Amino acid sequence: MDFLPAGGQDGRVTGVEMSKRPRRNHSPAFKAKVALAAVKGEKTLAELAQQFDVHPNQITQWRGQLLEGAAGVFGSETRSEAAEPVIDVKTLHAKIGELTLVNDFLSGALGKAGLLPSAKR
């Protein structure tokens, strides 16, 4: 719990509880609206924070994300970075076979040692 200082002469903290604001999840459309308003620069961060009921640091973060991702709208380098990695199916099949072999060996060894439950023998 968070407490507010009592403001008394001895500086003790009293049992006055602060109410916490529940965590809010903003939609992408809302974030874009706030970030665009920040990019326009017609109002200060403080004014935007008051208007949209969001902390100024959050507005700055959304503005930065908007500016970073803006180039992707026009098909620049960000698409090539987001390309999926090449998957080598032969390597994956080899790894599956190797792991199956190890699993079978270990289950057999543990079964002979009596360390596996009776249902898995």
Rank of each mutant, 00 (worst) to 15 (best):
D88A: 07
A71T: 05
V102F: 14
F3G: 05
S107G: 02
P22Q: 07
K33I: 11
L66E: 04
V16F: 00
P117C: 02
V39L: 01
L45C: 02
A119C: 10
Q9M: 02
H55M: 08
A109N: 12
R63N: 03
N25E: 06
P117I: 02
E17S: 15
T60G: 03
S19G: 15
G64C: 07
K95E: 15
S80V: 07
L45E: 05
A37D: 12
E98Q: 12
F3E: 02
E98T: 14
A38D: 01
D53I: 00
E84H: 14
P22T: 00
K120L: 04
K33R: 11
D10P: 13
N25C: 03
F30A: 15
L67W: 00
P5E: 05
S118P: 15
L99S: 10
L106G: 00
L92C: 01
G114M: 00
V34A: 03
A113Q: 03
F105R: 09
V102R: 14
V34S: 04
L106C: 14
V13H: 00
A46D: 14
G75W: 00
A32V: 14
G41W: 00
E47F: 00
Q50C: 03
Q9A: 05
D2T: 09
K95M: 05
L101D: 08
K95A: 11
V54E: 05
W62K: 09
G72I: 14
I59C: 05
L45D: 13
P22Y: 05
F105S: 14
T44K: 13
E68V: 03
A82H: 10
K40M: 05
L110P: 02
P5C: 03
K31G: 05
Q61A: 09
L4S: 14
K40D: 06
A38W: 00
K40H: 04
R23I: 01
N57W: 08
H26S: 11
A119S: 13
H93C: 07
A71L: 09
S76K: 12
R79F: 02
K20F: 07
I96A: 13
A32N: 15
S27C: 10
A49R: 01
Q58D: 11
K31F: 03
T78F: 02
M1I: 03
G75N: 09
A38T: 06
F105A: 12
N25P: 08
I59N: 00
R24A: 05
N103L: 13
S27H: 07
P5A: 11
A70N: 10
D53P: 01
Q65N: 11
T14C: 12
G11A: 07
K90W: 00
I87G: 01
A70W: 10
A46K: 14
K120H: 09
A71D: 06
G64Y: 01
E84I: 13
D53F: 02
G69R: 07
V34C: 01
L101R: 15
A82Q: 13
E47H: 01
R63I: 04
G69F: 06
G69H: 10
I96T: 15
Q61L: 11
V13I: 08
V39Y: 00
A49F: 04
A37I: 05
V34N: 09
D53M: 04
A35G: 08
A119R: 09
A35P: 10
P5W: 06
